[in-house]
């Protein structure tokens, strides 16, 4: 059996997540993935903002930086630009990254700075009590949308791709093996890598939206996620209500810290 203990800060357990929450599943997948990649813990920096998912770094024994709401990517940009040799992973949520931190999200993607972003999409503001978030689906109920949300949700993967990220993928906490593989790919990719992880909140979202039992959420993920291969073969009708998972976008683009190093080299040569 895989031994997680060397990678975690055991003294911080039990964790704060509710029973039925998928965030612990991501934590374990993340540990297995980084173990497989042979990343040195001293050279890994995990940065997060505010929210349930943003508590992840506290449990992982690397350099960890728990920042202000929405600003993880700004702090992470400073870390990576100052020390490009460090492996920087940002853990954030849908509200943290695409509402209050939306500007940093699109600009970090535009710069294509070599940061891996694990964006846990739980469809709600979980920690503050279930308020409507940018990914809450239209019609879903939330504590600040008691009659159902009247707003359309963000396509956060599409947003990262449009802004310039060189790698965009989507995974979920039901298809765990696949999630682990996607985390590996995202970390290995040079440039801005966005991995959207569907980890629906049972407490604040599921209960309000007829999926109060965590098993129901797992079944929903099982039944609604489809692989890219399958998606390609589906008709528009069949795609209705389904969510693609896998690698959505993977291109080579100039990376920010490389470009800065090139500039430094060019200026040296001109001197």
């Amino acid at each position: 059996m895989f031994d997680y203990l060397p990678y975690i800060r055991e003294w911080n357990f039990p964790h704060i997540w509710c029973s039925g929450c998928g965030d612990g599943i991501v934590l374990k997948a993340l540990i297995r993935a980084t173990d497989g990649l042979g990343i040195h813990r001293d050279e890994a920096v995990m940065v997060s903002g505010i929210g349930c998912s943003s508590r992840t770094p506290g449990y992982v024994d690397v350099n960890t930086l728990h920042t202000t709401h929405g600003r993880a990517l700004a702090f992470a940009t400073g870390v990576k630009h100052a020390s490009p040799n460090l492996n920087v992973i940002v853990v954030t949520g849908d509200g943290d990254a695409t509402a209050i931190g939306g500007n940093h999200y699109i600009h970090a993607a535009r710069r294509n700075i070599d940061i891996t972003v694990l964006l846990y999409n739980n469809y709600i503001y979980g920690m503050t009590g279930g308020q409507v978030s940018p990914t809450t689906r239209k019609g879903d109920r939330a504590s600040t949308a008691p009659f159902g949300s009247i707003e359309p949700p963000f396509n956060i993967s599409g947003l990262a791709k449009a802004a310039g990220a060189s790698f965009v993928a989507r995974g979920d906490v039901y298809n765990v093996k696949k999630l682990e593989k996607l985390i590996k790919l995202a970390i290995q990719k040079k440039g801005f890598s966005l991995l959207e992880i569907l980890s629906p909140c049972p407490t604040a979202w599921g209960r309000r939206n007829k999926m109060g039992h965590p098993v129901q959420l797992m079944e929903w993920l099982r039944d609604s996620t489809v692989s890219m291969e399958k998606w390609e073969k589906m008709t528009d009708e069949e795609r209705e209500g389904k969510i693609r998972t896998g690698v959505l976008h993977d291109v080579a683009r100039p990376e920010f810290t490389d470009e800065y190093a090139k500039l430094v080299k060019r200026l040296k040569a001109e001197k």
Partner: peptide, 30 residues
């Protein structure tokens, strides 16, 4: 870029302050 320093124009004032703190934590004066 000439003397070994790192410059970045961030997307906003908030981000600028965040980047400074991140850089400072790697040991740089920022």
């Amino acid at each position: 870029p000439i003397i070994g320093g790192k410059f970045i124009q961030m997307e906003d004032e908030i981000g600028a302050m965040g980047s400074v703190i991140g850089a400072a934590l790697t040991g740089m004066k920022a």
